[in-house]
Computed example of a mutant assay.
Amino acid sequence: MSEETPRRRALGRRRRANVEGGRKHSHRVLVTPEEEAVLAQRAEAARISVPRLLIEAALAQHGETATDRREALEELFRVRGYLGAVSNNVNQVAKATNATREVQEDLASTLAAVRATSARVHRVLDALGADA
Rank of each mutant, 00 (worst) to 15 (best):
E34Q: 11
E34T: 05
E34G: 06
E35N: 03
E35M: 03
E35V: 00
E35A: 04
E35C: 00
E35H: 02
E35Q: 07
E35S: 03
E36M: 02
E36R: 06
E36D: 05
A37T: 09
A37V: 00
A37S: 13
A37P: 01
V38Y: 02
V38G: 00
V38S: 07
V38K: 15
V38R: 14
V38F: 01
V38N: 01
V38W: 05
V38E: 13
L39W: 10
L39M: 13
A40P: 00
A40C: 06
A40S: 11
A40I: 02
A40W: 00
A40H: 02
A40E: 07
A40R: 12
A40V: 02
Q41D: 14
Q41E: 15
Q41C: 03
Q41S: 14
R42I: 03
R42M: 14
R42K: 15
R42T: 04
R42H: 11
A43W: 08
A43N: 09
A43Q: 05
A43M: 10
A43R: 03
A43F: 01
E44N: 12
E44T: 10
E44C: 01
E44D: 14
E44G: 12
A45S: 14
A45E: 15
A45D: 15
A45I: 09
A46Q: 14
A46C: 07
A46Y: 14
A46H: 15
R47I: 11
R47L: 14
R47C: 13
I48E: 15
I48W: 11
I48L: 12
I48G: 13
I48N: 13
S49C: 12
V50T: 09
V50L: 01
P51W: 08
P51G: 07
P51T: 05
P51A: 12
P51Q: 10
P51K: 03
P51H: 04
P51R: 06
P51C: 10
R52K: 15
R52V: 15
R52L: 12
R52F: 11
L53D: 11
L53E: 15
L53F: 10
L53I: 08
L53W: 15
L54V: 14
L54I: 13
L54N: 09
I55T: 11
I55N: 06
I55H: 04
I55V: 14
I55Q: 12
I55K: 10
E56S: 04
E56H: 10
E56A: 07
E56T: 07
E56G: 09
E56M: 05
E56C: 12
A57D: 05
A57Y: 05
A57C: 11
A57M: 09
A58F: 15
A58K: 09
A58R: 06
A58W: 12
L59M: 13
L59V: 08
A60D: 01
A60P: 05
A60S: 14
A60C: 05
A60E: 01
A60K: 01
A60L: 02
A60G: 01
Q61N: 04
Q61M: 00
Q61W: 00
Q61C: 00
Q61R: 05
Q61A: 04
H62C: 04
H62V: 03
H62Q: 13
H62Y: 05
G63C: 06
G63I: 06
G63M: 03
E64F: 05
E64K: 13
E64T: 11
E64I: 09
E64N: 03
T65K: 09
T65W: 07
T65Y: 08
